[in-house]
């Protein structure tokens, strides 16, 4: 995955280097600009079994700031924000591997360096007994829960 491009960033930013579970890494450029979740919408995406995006709805495209064609074929961790503790994603993948539903509050990174909070649900797509991919649906989170996560997540690194 490509490093973030300073030309895409809106506002002052800080640089971070994030290493993912597959050993790859990415330079992130992060601002403090929050984008509110669009009222009444759901952000929907699907991935293959390796976490590569195969489907993204319009709300996903809008909130991520990427073009749809830039998202399809990329790992879902293109949205990974450096403030998210790796333990949250380990729990997500462990839960999905058990073919169970995972839910949690997630701070996602936008292409422009900003962020948005979501309440995410991910489930395995099981067809004829086989897991063929995963669906993730994000909805508007409770602000109170987000504030709790803002206090908790820094303690989980």
């Amino acid at each position: 995955m490509q490093d973030m491009n300073p030309q895409d960033i809106v506002g002052d930013y800080t640089e971070h280097e994030l290493t993912f579970h597959d050993g790859s890494s990415r330079k992130l450029l992060v601002t403090e600009e929050e984008t509110p979740f669009p009222k009444g919408c759901l952000i929907v995406s699907r991935t293959d079994t390796t976490g590569v995006i195969t489907h993204a709805n319009q709300s996903f495209v809008l909130m991520s700031g990427y073009e749809k064609s830039d998202l399809i074929g990329e790992p879902h961790h293109i949205l990974r924000h450096p403030d998210m503790p790796p333990a949250a994603f380990k729990d997500l993948w462990d839960t999905l591997q058990r073919r169970e539903k995972w839910q949690g509050y997630v701070k996602n990174l936008r292409r422009d360096g900003g962020f948005y909070w979501v309440y995410a649900t991910a489930i395995p797509n099981i067809r004829n007994g086989e897991v063929v991919g995963y669906t993730s649906v994000r909805r508007e989170p409770s602000r109170k829960k987000v504030e709790e996560c803002m206090a908790l997540y820094p303690t989980l690194f």
Binding site: T121, R127, T135, V137
Partner: peptide, 16 residues
């Protein structure tokens, strides 16, 4: 069938 399965998965994420 896949259209239906997709919608079922989506509904499944919304029920808890």
């Amino acid at each position: 069938t896949e259209d239906a399965e997709f919608m079922i998965d989506l509904m499944d994420t919304l029920t808890t």
